[in-house]
Simulated assay, not measured.
Amino acid sequence: MPAPRNTFKAALAQQRPQIGCWMSFGEASTAELMATAGFDWLVIDGEHGPNDLRSIRDQLMVTDPSPSHAVVRVPYGQDWIIKQALDAGAQTLLVPLIDTAEQAREMVRACRYAPEGIRGMGGAGSRVTRFGSISDYATTANREICLLVQVETRLGIENLDEILAVDGVDGVFIGPADLSADMGFPGNSGAPEVQDVIEAAIRKVRAAGKAAGILTLSIDGAQKHLAQGATFVAVGIDTLVLANAARSLCSDAKALLDQQ
Rank of each mutant, 00 (worst) to 15 (best):
L33M: 11
A245N: 10
L12I: 08
R206C: 04
V233N: 07
I98L: 08
G236P: 04
T140S: 13
I202E: 06
E32K: 09
D161L: 02
E27L: 13
V149L: 09
E47S: 12
N244V: 07
V95C: 09
Q91L: 14
D99S: 13
L256H: 11
G175A: 05
L155G: 00
V149A: 03
R105A: 15
G236Y: 01
P67N: 02
G187M: 11
A191G: 06
T231S: 14
L226H: 09
S135P: 00
L179S: 09
D52S: 10
G26T: 01
L12C: 12
E152Y: 02
D161Q: 13
I56H: 10
G171M: 04
F131N: 12
E162T: 11
A191S: 08
I56G: 12
D182H: 12
A110K: 09
A181N: 06
L160W: 02
L148T: 11
V197C: 08
R154G: 15
L240Y: 12
R206S: 13
D40I: 01
A138W: 03
R206N: 08
R130K: 11
G20Y: 00
Q59S: 11
S251C: 00
G117K: 10
S29M: 11
A200V: 02
I134A: 02
L148I: 15
L53M: 15
C250V: 14
S24Y: 09
E102S: 12
L164M: 11
S66D: 07
L147Y: 05
Q103E: 15
G20P: 03
F131I: 01
E102D: 15
N142M: 06
G20N: 02
L33Q: 08
A253G: 07
M107I: 11
L97V: 10
M183A: 10
M183V: 04
Q259M: 14
N142F: 00
I237F: 04
R206Q: 10
R57Q: 15
P4F: 04
V241D: 06
D87R: 00
A165E: 13
S133D: 14
H48W: 07
R127H: 12
D238W: 01
Q59H: 01
P115D: 06
M107N: 07
G132L: 11
Y113T: 01
G229A: 07
R127W: 13
M34K: 00
Q15P: 02
A234F: 14
W80L: 14
E116R: 10
N6F: 03
T231L: 08
A246F: 14
I118Q: 08
A234P: 00
A243Q: 14
I174G: 11
G132Y: 08
R247E: 13
D238Y: 05
A201S: 15
E102R: 03
G171A: 05
A35V: 08
R54H: 13
Q78T: 12
V194I: 05
R109C: 03
V233L: 04
E152A: 02
M107C: 12
F131Q: 08
A243F: 11
P96G: 13
Q14H: 09
E102A: 15
D99K: 09
D40E: 04
C111R: 02
E144W: 04
G89P: 04
Q18R: 12
I174E: 07
P65R: 02
G184W: 07
L217T: 14
R57Y: 13
I237G: 12
I81E: 14
A37C: 09
P192C: 05
P2G: 03
I44F: 09
K224I: 12
